[in-house]
Structures are given as C-alpha cells and as structure tokens.
Amino acid sequence: MNKTILGYVPEESPIYNTHPATRILFLLIVSLFPMFISAPEWNLLLVVLILILMRYSRIDFSILKLYVPVAVSMGSIILLSYTVFAGNHPEFHELARVLGIRIYYERILDAITVYFRILPMIFIMIYFLSTSRERDIIVAMRSLRIPYAVTYLVAMALRAVGMVIEDFSIVRQAEQARGFDPVGKSIFYKMRKFVMYIIPLFALALRRADEFANALIARGYSFTGLLSNPKRADYVLTHYQAHYWDYLISFVLIVMLVALVVMRYGLGMLSLEGSLTEQLLRAWLLN
C-alpha cells in the first residue's frame, strides 16, 4: 500500500503508471472544466466520471464519507447565501416570503448551479490527494519548472496537511475515549460537533507553526526571493520516468479543455438556459 496524502492506495494501482506531472496536469486542467459548464447535469456527469476513475485507481470509497459533512455544509451555506441573503429583486419570480425574506426561483437556480460547479472540483481534489504522495507533488512541480521557493512552500504546506490529518485521527480517538459516539447521529449533529475537532487542530497547528519557523531559522534558512533556485540537498530520491501515454493523456486533456471553451463560447452549449435542471426546476417550482 502507498500512503498518500488522504489515505492508502495499493501499489499496483494503475494511477502509478503515470508520471506525477501528468497527475498534476489532470488536477489543474480538469478543475477548470466546471468553469465552462453551467448546466448542473453535465457537472454531475463529471462527478460520476471522477468516481469511475477513483474506482479504476482502486481508491477506498469509504474515505468519501468523511467529506459528506463538508459537501452538505457547503451546499447549505451556498443555498442560504443565495436565498436568505438574496436581496430584493422585483424582476425575479418570487416563490415565497418567509419572515419577510423573499425567496426567488432564479436565486435557487443560481445556488444549484454554483454548488454543482464546486462539487466536481472537490471530487477532483479528493481524487488527486487520495492518489498522490507528498513527493509525487514535489516531483510534479519541479517537472513543470515551478520556481524552487514555490515548490519548497508547497512541500512545507503538504507536510502540514499530512500532520493535520494524523492529528485529526488522534483528536477523533481522544473524543471517542471520552464517550463521544457519533454513530447513528444525524449529519447536522455531526456538523455541529465538528467544532470540537477544529479547536484542538487549530491550537496544534499554531504551536507547530511556531516550532516549524524556529526550526527553519535555527538551520540558517532565510528567504531569498521567489526566483532564486539554489541547489540544495534533496530528500526525494525516487526516480520517475515519463512514458508515451503521459504525453498522450496531457494532450487529450488540453484538447478537451479547448473543446469545452469552443462548445461553451463558440457554440453556446453547456449553458444553464434550456438545461435539463432548469427545465425540471421550472416545471416543479413555477408551474
């Protein structure tokens, strides 16, 4: 098993036949796809495709349930901000008035569109972090000729992510050891109780950031500018090789991105107007 940033993936997973740079290109390019897709059903299809890729890459699906509270809370915040804080719009279709707050059809449609744009991005990030080790990301960034200082900063951030995930696991066990049992409780209960994980994590992160900074200074680190590229000792010793399929995948990704731009702005496809979601919502709420 390979320990990745978000979990474990078998060493035999086909994802490890690709160069880390290909994987980071996948993250960067596919994350842009939802920006050119307004129709929620197409973004939902993108989520399904990523789930299929996750299965193909032999990612344990049980990690996804950890992100359900994130997805639900994010959806709730978007819906609330687009409906309760929507303001006054006489030009919109008013559906209801609750305690003086006007709920508009157009704002609900906007909330759904935004939510289904963000959702694939979250899944792409989960897919990427579930299959990538810290060193994969550093190698990928170097392959893409990203300046040393940026790579260094990202490497430190990734180390922090790994430590926070480990801390999270211990904090969760520490709460369980005091009788906190979320099994069978509602998602809202779990979301409400999430604060008790956040506070120790935040406290630990603050203390650790201080130690981290002191450790760097104690070893003579000084910031010399983003473009400097001093040769330093490297702890990444694994050698990676790019294959023909890495170039092929990168090429296909770029073609797909260009095709999306053309479809969206050249042909007017993938827009919200006339989309299946819009038709269904209109039929349900307005007729």
Partner: peptide
Amino acid sequence: TSMAKRVGYVFQNPDHQLF
C-alpha cells in the same frame, strides 16, 4: 460510550483532546 466508562485512555499530548 460503554467502553469509555470502563477503560479510560489519556493521550500522550493533552493538546489532542482539549477543546
């Protein structure tokens, strides 16, 4: 919950459980 009443566990780093 039942186990916590029988076997308590004090973690090495108190910061992991204080919130």
